[in-house]
Design a protein around this nucleic acid. Structure first.
Lengths: 172, 172
DNA sequence: ATAACTGCAAACTGTTTGCAAGCGA
DNA sequence: TCGCTTGCAAACAGTTTGCAGTTAT
């Protein structure tokens, strides 16, 4: 897999993934009778160049850097297409805005660990979650369809050293 | 425990719980130098008379039935007091409004199973969750502080019979 | 050609806040 | 009395939507 937890590597597989995903995107648009527009492609590219989680507003900025004509409305109208095609994952961590993440072709369910100190979101493979959700659902006679496990945490390193790589990154 | 999963019973313990909790509320207000007002008490009562999850708007309605003078602003200003005192649990399931639930003195962590068909929220004891969150957090060197496990599910009964008790209840 | 798509700005929704009046300690 | 609390209405933030013009197919 192109990405390990400790040190996200930008390898050739990220570019490959982007190209393959763009093809998927085109196919999806055609299949749904939707048009392939410059704006949609710019938004797609912006999303897949983001190595981490991004907000709608950040996506707008990046997309505009690619195609100046992209508007906020189009970003908001395109995001559902991207999520429904499975290319982008929508992540709601209980803030008043949502986060998004370009899919890296993850097979397993993932949990989010949210650092309350540096605001970083870690995506963690959590294969066990699926089984657990099933067993918990069964208790009330339901069939699981989507799972969401989020752990809000504190960064011990940051508290001790008043610094950690993600915190520093955010502050610029 | 006063409540089991399959059939929530309204027993004497619910009333007892409310009275005990109201004392806790008064104590909390005093300790924090906050005033015991009619509006705050009405909002407290409204919350603890709700047997299930409720929204801020529903709480406002119920509180107004007790004290007509309660305003929306006061409800929104009182909810943080109730959650910070631990008497009411705030639940964010990714809708554009939050849910709240009067605490029944639950000790263990609870997961939510959300029925996408009838909109019902089941609270399920999930003692295992805590351990799991810890192990997942540790992977990235963080210390868990709060956990959130939500399973979005489909009601098999409803799909088969086009009916289930919670769905019927919602439709009135 | 024509229906899908776009940008703009206004609308929307749940929640928060500034202010002057009210009221608990 | 004092200042915490209140109701009101306006503000707020992220997102959605109506519309008239644009563009992919």
């Amino acid at each position: 897999m192109g990405v390990s937890i400790g040190k996200p590597r930008v390898t050739i597989t990220d570019t490959e993934n982007r190209e393959k995903s763009k093809e998927t995107f085109r196919d999806y648009l055609n299949r749904e009778g939707l048009r392939v527009t410059n704006q949609r492609l710019a938004i797609f590219d912006a999303a897949f160049r983001h190595p981490e989680h991004f907000t709608a507003e950040e996506l707008l900025d990046q997309a505009r850097a690619i195609d100046h004509s992209v508007s906020r409305a189009t970003v908001y109208r395109t995001l559902p297409i991207l999520t429904e095609s499975g290319l982008v994952k929508e992540i709601d961590i209980g803030r008043d805005y949502k986060f998004y993440l370009a899919s890296k072709g993850d097979k397993t369910e993932q949990a989010q660990v949210l650092c309350l100190d540096c605001d970083h979101i870690f995506e963690i493979d959590a294969p066990f979650m699926e089984w657990y959700a099933g067993s918990v659902s069964q208790k009330v006679g339901l069939e699981p369809e989507a799972i969401r496990l989020q752990v809000h945490s504190r960064c011990t390193r940051l508290r001790r050293n008043h610094q950690c790589e993600h915190y520093s990154a955010r502050q610029g």
